[in-house]
Design a protein around this nucleic acid. Structure first.
Lengths: 192, 192
DNA sequence: ACCATTATGGACCGAATGGTCCGTAATTAT
DNA sequence: ATAATTACGGACCATTCGGTCCATAATGGT
């Protein structure tokens, strides 16, 4: 009954996400967003309300995408293989020198923005949970030693992941990350 | 032979450092800097040249301060105690929910600013080195198991530290960090 | 064909950005 | 006391920032 949009909302969100992920919130200007998405200013504001709201939706989409990917990557029965693979995937991630958007926002916005602090915190908790469930499963099906403290180990892996994300974004040498991962993952199969 | 400054350059640098550390580079405005340091705009530009140069000097000062502190903290003969103490100090650090300025800049600036990428990289390397030397010392005086791979373990600790820094800045619950540290530091005294 | 409705381009806005410049104040050496 | 030198306050600047608004274009329903 009216003129249709000539853009796909999710498509725009993903383009905005890529920008915010790469440059951060403050350093991404409206001009950047308009250029990358191809939208006009009025369309962007009509559709998303403000730069901040657009960012929030883009970040939510990131969190969802990433959790889906992580969950999928951890789905194989052998929990040890699942977890080691997940970490090694981070290293080889296709075009990724951008690190993790959640880690980025943990540093840029969380300290001074309660809403984002909450979003970041919940994402970290979700990661912890999916790690924990994977470890539980591993203990049940024998792919991980039964004596592991699931929650503790899940937290260890969660924080480890953030360390990796920082180093990736700083373009650290691959060997550094390989050494880190190699040591960190020993915690999964060592005997007590 | 001329009018003297009525401010101390290092004092100003430290105030600027605190601001950049807390808010990041982009989100710290000139107005913030002038207000916090008490300088006039002309004095600031006369003395430091530009916002960026001021930032660079503040960041250099941060790196120096932090390395001095870390080195001092690791100076005790017992390397295991030295390292565990260093990590636990990070948790209890006085007013620190700001994380580590180097980690912050690794995320905010390093990916798009070669000069900063280099500064961050060298800081990480320096941290790795001081960890490595501490571990070497521990192996020599028997406070650490001789079988440890010093470089590998130093890298493990360096990246671990960055994970902690992200979590601190995101105001993660203390238990999460305690769990992480407890697991990570087991790597230092486990038998093979 | 035309009306109701929505999308869009672009003009416009005030505020804030980093930065320059200059007249004046303060100081020391002579 | 004065000349030389440096520091400083604040006016000024162009640009960019996020955001608003409106006139016009495009579409679907009837």
């Amino acid at each position: 009954m009216a003129r249709p949009r000539n853009f796909d909302e999710e498509d725009v969100l993903r383009k905005a996400m890529a920008l915010f992920w790469s440059k951060g919130y403050e350093s991404t200007s409206l001009a950047d967003l308009l250029q990358t998405t191809g939208l006009s200013k009025s369309s962007l504001y009509e559709t998303f309300g403000s730069k901040r709201e657009l960012f929030l939706r883009a970040f939510q989409l990131y969190k969802k995408d990433r959790m889906d990917g992580l969950t999928a990557g951890l789905s194989q029965p052998d929990a040890y293989l699942a977890l080691t693979n997940a970490f090694k995937t981070v290293l080889d991630g296709k075009g990724n020198q951008m690190g993790c958007m959640t880690a980025n926002e943990a540093i840029e916005l969380a300290p001074h923005d309660p809403k984002l602090q909450e979003m970041v915190e919940s994402d970290f908790y979700n990661i912890e949970e999916v790690f924990r469930q994977t470890i539980e499963r591993g203990k049940e099906n024998g792919s991980l030693r039964a004596g592991l403290d699931s929650r503790k180990m899940a937290r260890f892996l969660t924080v480890s992941l953030q360390g990796i994300n920082v180093m990736i974004r700083a373009q650290a040498k691959r060997e550094v990350l390989e050494d880190f991962i190699s040591v960190a993952l020993e915690k999964l199969n060592e005997r007590e």
